[in-house]
Nucleic acid binder design. Sequence first.
DNA 1: ATAAACCAGTGACTCAGATCACACACCGTT
DNA 2: AACGGTGTGTGATCTGAGTCACTGGTTTAT
Lengths: 238, 238
Amino acid sequence: MHAPYGLTILDNCVSCPRRQDHLFCNVSIHAAQRLNEIKSTAVYPKGAMLFIEGQLPRGVFVLCNGKVKLSTTSREGKTIITKISESGDVLGLNAIVSNRPYEVTAEMLEPGQANFIPRDPLLHFLKEFPEVAVRVAQQLSRNYFAAYEEIRTLGLAASPSEKFAKLLLSWSSSVPRENGSTQLKLTLTHEEIGEIIGTTRETVSRIFSEFRRKQLVQLKGATLVIRNLPALEKIIQS
Amino acid sequence: MHAPYGLTILDNCVSCPRRQDHLFCNVSIHAAQRLNEIKSTAVYPKGAMLFIEGQLPRGVFVLCNGKVKLSTTSREGKTIITKISESGDVLGLNAIVSNRPYEVTAEMLEPGQANFIPRDPLLHFLKEFPEVAVRVAQQLSRNYFAAYEEIRTLGLAASPSEKFAKLLLSWSSSVPRENGSTQLKLTLTHEEIGEIIGTTRETVSRIFSEFRRKQLVQLKGATLVIRNLPALEKIIQS
DNA sequence: ATAAACCAGTGACTCAGATCACACACCGTT
DNA sequence: AACGGTGTGTGATCTGAGTCACTGGTTTAT
């Protein structure tokens, strides 16, 4: 266990600019102390599985840094990625609240640190701090809306191009824009992008080529420059 | 207002066999009394809209009888049906909890009665009865899992045939089975079935024909007889 | 009773995207 | 340097399901 035990959830989060939004990173001092008692911190390597679809829920993971891929796989081996989680996200919450098996697999996309809170202490904690329980309910509701958005995308969006444009825009909205174009690190493979928007690797490759040809995006090494936001918006129009 | 005001939520639900499962139909006597004070009951005709996608949330509807179609529509006019709600379901809960616009449109598929609980009194009620609030959280979690199931169906299921088979099986699971075949009233049009499984009216028609040809199902008037459950299961296999 | 809507079924045609099959670039290993 | 592994780019081909068009049946309105 070479994890930095000196750090606490509070400590971790003090420096985080989005702390206010984070379910377990912005609670009363008493609640935070309690959380520190029941949590355990660990660093996970790239590729580590925090939990696997179908497992009985052991607890939740609060991601401190790094990215996590949430995915589900059919019997035939087809995989869809439902979300790329970032720091501050609470993983496995739905499974804990309703005591059902994890509905997704959570895999570290890059090395990172996470706090684990076991099921029973967590439920006990929520009874002790009802104000946090309310925020849990709101988080569940937010999860629902995210899932709902995905249903709309899968069920209503027409072509892979549209979905890809939508994905690029959702990425660009999380980074600052500078005179109409945004820049971001592209960490996913075409295969993974395909699993997000529900198409094949080849199709992603082709759409990508097409977007570059049309000067909508530009690729410099691993850095993706989105040069024409309006044109992407126009592709979506839904 | 020709609604049967004499009935209360409690009264309505006493005779309901699935009452135990229903969020607001199985609460303490005190909570029930409080609910009766803040609810109002009405009967809605077929085609009535309880609420519409995008509206600010006014409150929740507890469905007493009848069926309700929950759907969402894209700008281009394509519609998907996300759920057919039945008696006991609470509609609009997510919108109330997170105070966002209704994410779906709720339309009566057949005439029926519903209790309306306005937003503010409901939130107040939940503070007054935390044990009900916990059940609300669990209901939200259940809603999430239902949405998640839909994502899996839309994202992983391959062909319309598979999805239709899946739908038939989900229908058949809610009615008793008699020596391997189940019977149910078919109330939806092919168009609506298409909006559930994400395909066109014509394709539904063709798949339906195919299933009849293969003796998987049989149609007697508005009664659908599912004769070969195992074969349908085999079509899904995901 | 008749018209007007709506619903169901089926053929013919088309095309977007899945599938298959390569070629090539890049990177850490031995 | 040669190697296997992984990711990317693009042609060629195939096919499932969307679209269009029409028929006939059934329910609702006037």
